[in-house]
Amino acid sequence: MMFTPRVTQKIAFGVLLAASLVVLLPVGVVVFVILKNGLGAISWEFLTEMPRSGMREGGILPAIVGTFCLVTGALLFALPLGLFAAIYLSEYAGDNRLNRVIRLAIVNLAGVPSVVFGLFGLALFVNFFRFGASILSGSLTLGVMILPVIITSSREALESVPKSFREVSLSLGATRLQTIKHAVLPHALPGILTGTILGVGRAAGETAPILFTVAAFYLPKLPTSLFDQAMALPYHLYVLSTQVPNVEAKIRYGTALVLLAIVLLMNLTAIAIRSYFRSRKKW
């Protein structure tokens, strides 16, 4: 049977629309299920208290604090390093063999499975540097994992700053470093920030990299130093779901909800920053 072009067009449109809706479906279901089962667990007590009776009761405060520490540590490590690398690659680096290798390495780093980062962190930070299973090791491991995200998004942000800004600055007698500092970075900052927050959001939700490097199974106290072990939300969720018998469903889903909310909040912040600056910029 033959269709007219008009009918073909309509069918194609329908198929494309259906594909988009199917993508929406899992998102909707995930949010719905977690909200429905987890909302009942959320209370002030749940957010601010230690777990009790083998995690079957009480709150998840140490996991929240642990995740917060890990994310902050990863950020402190990865942002300066990633930003410097991005500046070098987009502002200074020519097209030679070394720089091509660096760029290739970054692309590949982004594709490494997160469990491999976990093993890497175990080998390098925990064992070789003897940091032990600690917040320091976990933060560094997560930092290495989000490094390519930060470098790539920072490079894109830097390269989207018009060439004319650099030209003007140089023509006014600025050095290249001054040009980067005064004429390029300020205008790339929103993009860099957005990319960084997205990277950090990813770090907050990862389980595998912290599995061997920091995560404590059950540690009902807050960490006091960088060399302490800590609980973290994603790992806590894994433990609750598979390792501890007879945990109420609402505690599991409540934990998932908190984790989801944190990640969502970060992404929303990123989107807000981006749209705020997009409305201001005009070049």
Binding site: S164, F165, E167, S171, A183, K281, K282, W283
Partner: peptide, 8 residues
């Protein structure tokens, strides 16, 4: 320059 290019 050819196009006015003030910084934003």
């Amino acid at each position: 320059f050819q196009r006015p290019n003030p910084f934003p």
